[in-house]
Design a protein around this nucleic acid. Structure first.
Lengths: 409, 409
DNA sequence: GTTTTTTGTTCCGGTGCGATACAAAGCCAG
DNA sequence: CTGGCTTTGTATCGCACCGGAACAAAAAAC
């Protein structure tokens, strides 16, 4: 009996991670496709699924399902365990913070926000956010396996310092990962004996989330570009892994030249994407002065949606689409992605006139005429938040058995 | 006895590939470092080395070596088998072709060239080159495990078509991989039952070769940029693998804007790296008219080396260094590599004034002030040729046992 | 000489997985 | 309804790969 259980538990150990990732990303609805996706035998796939089930990470629905019309014995269906463990995700933005408990599959189980201007002391904000997360954990009684943080700034590896928290009042170079880990340790979250903290640039995390659960699912080389407030951010997912460069600073796409006679940029050049295709640039080109109400992104996106009839707004949209397209074409020439996803204002620009943007990119990229890269709007709410959760889930996806080990500790 | 041999043969099968790659790239001079590099036990490393030896891929020198002053029993030394199998590497360039037999470790065992203008028929050239390679194989009596091809053109995946064989008289879109495979099949090279052909852009292959055997050894994210004749090429090696994008067209770096008021480029923009930092641009800026003798690269590099006292030449060099630096800084912002290697004219420019180039890159890249990327000249003769050989070796590095299987066939 | 340190080898055992046979659960044809 | 056919899930066997431990070997340190 014990013998049987032991052997079953240890079947397919090396495939556990890939299998969980397949279920997590919704690419393995049944054991049958798990078998083919993993490239293993049915026996192994079954054992792997059984192990993941005993670990409490997935659930199996073996009831006779409404058959899909195909022949043969119907598959049991695999689900992520909706009542299983969660991770804590924290997102800091200009207007406050948002924390959430996120389960496997990228599902937000519970969330809350903290509003008001972000004070200049990151440790204070992080402590408040982690405290709110601990409250959510108490309310829901979920087990927590880790925590991830999204900040609107480039984050340098390997130390996790926020180099340019532009629209936060934080000091440049704040060691956000260390501060986050300390906040987690102070909060003494039940079940997490050792504070595990990860942190990342919010556009990077958007890319990760979109790749796993959104419009980027199935892409091999995914490029994401987004503009939230000031400047333009980029991120790249290669073979399912975030590519953040040797020191975490890759995809700083804001200083591609897209308008040689354009506005001067603090980087010393002129006409950088950062100053030619962000929300402020749009408002300026459209002849509007930014108001104090709402973020620049909201103002720009609202204008685009509500006043597209206005010729000045339309001309501004066309101009920004052209500039953005030029920047994307440059990135296509360098990175040759197989999909592009746009967020923030760029998403709105894409949805305003998709054909124009695609035409510009195809025309200005070197080999774009023969096909063209699909360009899609992001398809997930709170994608940076979900991406922060993905960072926290990563150790579990790499080796699901750590769930068991932590329970022991 | 047979039992013993069988078990020994099958020990460490999963580690065979990584182990061979370590010896191949010179990172495992002894079984001891093989043990630590692979992260396995001495027993496993020993078995792996024994298996690679029986496969005829490596040799072990167990004689008491002149000790290195350290304590303990001296290690036996591991070498790539100098008399082992080879692969056939073919490089096509404007002035002809070069073929070579390349052993493990990137050593060129035998080489020959074919000169004269390249005719417009790729199949003819490839047949001639492969024929020359077959001659080398007959002369040396070596066993051949595969073949690789380097062409001065972007090569589209997955079909292997040369999209822009710029300074060859070949038609754009020539299916070079297929033609190469056919030439290999026609040559009926002894030992190669199934013609295995690979092909790649010459800058990509330079990057691969430099990463494995040259100045890029040990880099995790390696960026290579080179200018051979007209235009500028780039390549990226990530985690030991060439990153050529979703359709093989990544790192087309020639159309980064480096001089907003610069010369018009066929791509529709102005001041692209392609027209601002290649050998022709250098000659033009220096006020020389290109002569009919020798390639543009030779003329430019000779001028740089022999006439650096001439103020016009020096000014041209400074200008091109600045332009190149701007382009490299843009790439650093996007790719965040941990090393950069320059080839062709750019190598000469780097060696002319290394400090100037490093300063420009550090100044114009976003986070360059805090450190700076090492920029090195390429360190290998015939690096594209060796890179073509690397393509052919790759299947063996992925699973060394195919050597045995091919012998059987 | 003995002791210590590092390397290489032999043997045992465990773990992960493929192969196979079998059982289960639906279609389809008569 | 009964007997194929097809696909999915499961139990059992065996083997390949590798870690661990003990042992042997070859040098330096003492």
């Amino acid at each position: 009996m014990t013998q049987t259980r032991t052997t079953r538990l240890e079947r397919g150990r090396g495939s556990l991670g890939p299998a969980l990732e397949l279920v997590h990303t919704g690419r393995a609805p049944t054991r049958a496709v798990l078998t083919s996706e993993l490239g293993v035998t049915r026996a192994t796939a079954g054992a792997v699924a059984a192990e993941l089930e005993t670990l409490g990470l997935i659930t199996v629905d073996s009831r006779p399902t409404a058959s899909a019309g195909s022949q043969g014995r119907p598959s049991h269906r695999l689900f992520v365990n909706e009542r299983g463990p969660v991770v804590l995700a924290v997102q800091i933005h200009a207007d406050g913070f948002r924390v959430a408990l996120v389960g496997l599959g990228g599902r937000i189980v519970a969330t809350t926000t903290g509003c008001g201007a972000i004070p200049a002391d990151p440790a204070h904000v992080l402590a408040e956010a982690v405290g709110a997360g601990a409250g959510l954990l108490r309310e829901t009684g979920r087990r927590c396996l880790g925590a991830g943080l999204a900040v609107p700034s480039a984050v340098a590896e390997p130390d996790g310092e926020a180099l340019n928290p532009l629209h936060l009042a934080w000091p440049a170079g704040a060691p956000v990962r260390e501060l986050f880990q300390r906040a987690l340790a102070d909060a003494a979250i039940p079940g997490v004996t050792e504070a595990i903290g990860f942190s990342g640039n919010d556009v990077n995390l958007m890319a990760l989330a979109e790749h796993r659960h959104g419009a980027g699912r199935g892409a091999r080389d995914l490029l994401c570009v987004a503009s939230g407030h000031r400047g333009v951010g980029g991120a790249l997912v290669l073979d399912g892994r975030l590519h953040s460069g040797s020191s975490g600073l890759a995809l700083e796409v804001g200083h591609l030249t897209v308008h040689p006679e354009g506005a001067p940029c603090h980087c010393g050049s002129r006409g950088c994407l950062d100053v030619e295709a962000d929300p402020l640039a749009f408002l300026n080109v459209a002849g509007r002065t930014p108001g104090p109400e709402g973020s620049l992104l909201h103002q720009a996106a609202d204008l685009l949606r509500t006043a597209y009839d206005d010729p000045a707004v339309r001309a501004a949209a066309d101009l920004l689409i052209d500039r953005l397209g030029l920047g994307l074409a440059g990135l296509v020439n360098i990175l040759n992605p197989d999909r592009i996803i746009l967020g923030g204002l760029h998403r709105t620009l894409l949805e305003t006139d998709p054909e124009r943007l695609r035409a510009v990119v195809a025309d200005r990229s070197l080999w774009g005429r023969s096909g063209g890269v699909p360009i899609l709007p992001c398809g997930l709410d709170h994608n940076s938040l979900v991406g922060a959760a993905e960072l926290a889930w990563q150790p579990v996806l790499d080796d699901p058995l750590i769930v068991q080990e932590e329970r022991r500790a």
